[in-house]
Design a protein around this nucleic acid. Structure first.
Lengths: 151, 151
DNA sequence: CCCATATAATTGATACATCAACGATTGATA
DNA sequence: TATCAATCGTTGATGTATCAATTATATGGG
């Protein structure tokens, strides 16, 4: 474990630690798990969508999405239904009232997000986002390379 | 949800996504969960330690640490024992042979870490680490402020 | 029309993290 | 010294993410 790698490992561990802390506080602040917020956020932006899209584009396993949706449906937060032309696909959208409630709640809670990224200039934010994207690209590339090389 | 918050929310979501991907590939590459690697890394750097230190300084719940250590002990990777002067504290250290194996394995696998952070200059790495630390600080500060304010 | 295949969603098994409660040991103090 | 509090580690209950297998539906080629 040489030095240049050690800095990188530190970044990796720090990334994990920050993410875990952030999720934890986020959940207590929003009153919902980050996964659930991610799903709701997607629905808020896309309106009515096929469940399959949700399952593909949200970074959560399809099985987990199914289970979240079942709970959200039971709570009346979302509605699910099929259309005549395809009995496989399930469509999902926010319940109207729930949507209004979520929009309002987002405004109240947006302060949390702003505070966790306080003392960042707009330029730094862009840089940060860019770095994250770069890591993301690297990760997906590494996978393909290593798929054959690893046991 | 105004614009400045939207960038921030995007960063948050991206942070999660990157972390999840990274962990997933990391695990298949290292053949051990990131939590376990974190524990082993700590032990590699600190030698013999009281279990309580491990539980405090590693970013994992104490109960989870206990369970990992039990498995690692069963596998012969670590050794646990008590000392005469305090029957509460348990001491933990890597098994000698396991330690050699891990050190060697780290060298083999360090390529993975390097590749995920490829195309980063040393300066960028420092910046990245600095940003993560800043977020970390902000998060812990926010918690305290909000403890009273949130329901 | 029949069959192979693809797609959509779900379920079961498993693993892990967290919280809360607990038992054991130690230290401090009245 | 008897008791109360603190510390250390563990366990049980719970929630959730993941993978693999499964069911139901749709589609395309012989």
């Amino acid at each position: 474990m040489n030095d240049s790698c050690s800095v990188r490992l530190q970044i990796f561990l720090q990334l994990q630690a920050v993410n875990k802390d952030l999720c934890s506080k986020f959940e207590t602040c929003f009153g919902a798990s980050t996964s659930r917020v991610e799903i709701l956020h997607y629905l808020l932006q896309h309106g009515e969508v096929p469940q399959s899209s949700l399952q593909k584009e949200v970074n959560i396993d399809a099985a987990a999405v199914t289970r979240h949706l079942k709970q959200l449906e039971a709570a009346g937060t979302i509605v699910r239904y099929k259309k005549a032309d395809d009995q496989r696909a399930t469509w999902v959208k926010l319940d109207d009232e729930a949507q209004r409630h979520i929009e309002q709640s987002y405004q109240e809670k947006s302060q949390f997000i702003e505070e966790t990224l306080a003392d960042f200039s707009e330029e730094e934010l862009q840089q940060f986002l860019h770095m994250l994207s770069k890591v993301s690209d690297n990760v997906s590339r590494v996978t393909k390379q290593h798929l054959g090389g690893e046991k």
